[in-house]
Design a protein around this nucleic acid. Sequence first.
DNA 1: TTACTTTGTTAAAATAACTAACAAATTCAA
DNA 2: TTGAATTTGTTAGTTATTTTAACAAAGTAA
Lengths: 393, 393
Amino acid sequence: MIGRGRTGNTKFVKQMNREGILHQLRQEPRLSRAELAVKTNLSRPCVSALVEEMIQEGLIREVGTGESRGGRKPILLEYNVQAYAVVGAVFEGSELEMAVADMKGEMIAQRHARLKQPVDGDSALKALEETLAHLLAASGIDRDRVIGIGVGLPGITQRRSGTVSHAPSTGWMDLPVGREIEERLRLPVVLDNDVNMMTQGEFSGGAGAGVSSLVYMYVGTGIGAGIILDKQLYRGSREASGEIGYMRIGDSPARRKGEFGVFEKNFSVTGIHGKAKALGLAVDPEVSILQQLIRLSGEGSAPAKVLLNEVYHGWASGIANMVSVLDPEMLVLSGEMLHLDEAGLDRIRELLLEWVPVVPDIRLAELRERAGLMGAVHSVLEAHSFAGTPGVS
Amino acid sequence: MIGRGRTGNTKFVKQMNREGILHQLRQEPRLSRAELAVKTNLSRPCVSALVEEMIQEGLIREVGTGESRGGRKPILLEYNVQAYAVVGAVFEGSELEMAVADMKGEMIAQRHARLKQPVDGDSALKALEETLAHLLAASGIDRDRVIGIGVGLPGITQRRSGTVSHAPSTGWMDLPVGREIEERLRLPVVLDNDVNMMTQGEFSGGAGAGVSSLVYMYVGTGIGAGIILDKQLYRGSREASGEIGYMRIGDSPARRKGEFGVFEKNFSVTGIHGKAKALGLAVDPEVSILQQLIRLSGEGSAPAKVLLNEVYHGWASGIANMVSVLDPEMLVLSGEMLHLDEAGLDRIRELLLEWVPVVPDIRLAELRERAGLMGAVHSVLEAHSFAGTPGVS
DNA sequence: TTACTTTGTTAAAATAACTAACAAATTCAA
DNA sequence: TTGAATTTGTTAGTTATTTTAACAAAGTAA
């Protein structure tokens, strides 16, 4: 695992100031030492010294001179995004998606692999290893320059111990996955579950770029949410935050042992399919249920209209509950909700305006299937505080 | 307002280390310099110097010697809780409750005042001023030794600007209350709404002492919640977190303009009274509705039983929703919920076990009407990072 | 009484940031 | 064209804070 390891104390200030400079340089690409001094509230000599150090390390580069503003021309500095690289990996069913990115989170190379069935821990590790080798070869990046790897796994992840408690499809159950990958790949590992990774992805490189709190809502076979508060992923006291499938929304028939949550039961893709079947609608389980409902409604089907409205109502209720509790700045909708059309989105916004006093900015996820990978990459950058550093304002 | 004002940078480390020492000393009352050095990872000379400084300032005291552990006897140090004092104040309707406390949050003197009706800003300020003078005189505390005052106000508070947007009962509407109190009392002010203050109170000196995340749920004429995550109060992006009265729980009849939230409408004290009336139950509006329902149920009233069950169900649903979203370590119930008996509490716990995968520790608030005051006091200590400092672990 | 421990202090060294002063490079106006 | 003003970057010396090393003070135990 990557961790800052707050060693002693006095070097800590220097580290903070270095991060402050890098942070500014990441926000605005071309700055002079003098401008950095102003923005970081450090003295010019101090900035010069730290910059010199980081140029030696390859973290920063001088890139020509800028326009004079009545005096000597400034030497412009740039954050060298190619100094190091990070790797992201996402397991999804028997598929593995993997990418190398620069330190801005920009993808350099990407590669897909299919795991052989049935998936077990060893074959997954092997796939990771091989795909990594391929990627590094293809992008011409030296292994020593890789900072770490972020891995997204389905199921609940206990990050503290690096153990995955519940990752059904990859054959990893209660294994110290983190350590295992670390040993096999000889790279620092950041582990998290898939929804958290996607959340981080949309937050740092998608719809939520720039906001400081955000809820990422995913509707698939289940319903889950990722939560970012104060620019930090919030995981809950038992890593179970955002398990919104368990909210009490919709009909709640007598629950059988070990069954899904009520919200999920009613308004996940499977839930909606069930309702459609009960209404006698002819729907294809292979195609987006929402798209089909919208089409059927457009064609005048009364039961489709009813169900579509019910779905909007259900999803909006879920959103209303989260918004009431958290008051996030933005809500990002994903999964099946990506098929919402403008009318549907407006309907949901309309319901929320009726129900809650403050409505967040609601939008669709932008990264689609790339969200997980993007998040995995950014989780490594984040762990190194190479991203979104607070700085010494 | 009190704020740390991160000036330069290098003094920041010293401040951090001082706080680290104080933090340790607050956790374990009698420690030697050598022990502090170990616990804070600072060198002994450094600890000595910082301790010396703080002894001069009166923050720390030497209190005799301890047992030898094979060598020279240690000189024991103690955090001097009486070095300074803090003041807490809570407005509630036309009542003002106020107290002085030491730096451990222990109340030294307390006093009640009734504002003259109708309440306006000026009379409230006057009451604050007079009561403060009384308290200081009674407790013999010098005004210079007061660090600041925490003020709890009903309604939504915009803390950033120190403006209260909505404080119906005190006659303060859209006024920069913070600055006004600051000028009048010549003390740093920490302002917050009443639920947040109560939450902070239960967190730092009540049922939630020691946990790192907690939800405080209050049922009165409305329903609201205070949220603590990572030992910090979470306020939301527009200071509207915990407005759980707007959750979609229970019947949702057509909402009229500007009307309450659904959850609140159904399961606040007023909501339950409405339901009781509709069921033809004879209840006294002056007495706890829950107590009456429990009594009537015990006496065999069928409609009371039905309603009581509905109330448990409704409250548990609200809790389930919050727990699904937040996964807090603990849930503290307050307001009308304080009248829950063991059977009622168990019923709620039972429902939650059925509905959500992880159930937090659920308990009743311990501080009752003192919660707000306690929170006001602790909010000042917190603002000075004299409480719960992270330290240099 | 002597050897060994633990605690606390002193003195010198090490870090890292700041101030002041200045050199370098450029604009602009006389 | 020249010199004053301005902005950028560096050098040198000062200050603040922590660490290391050494030692004195005060015990314990054999």
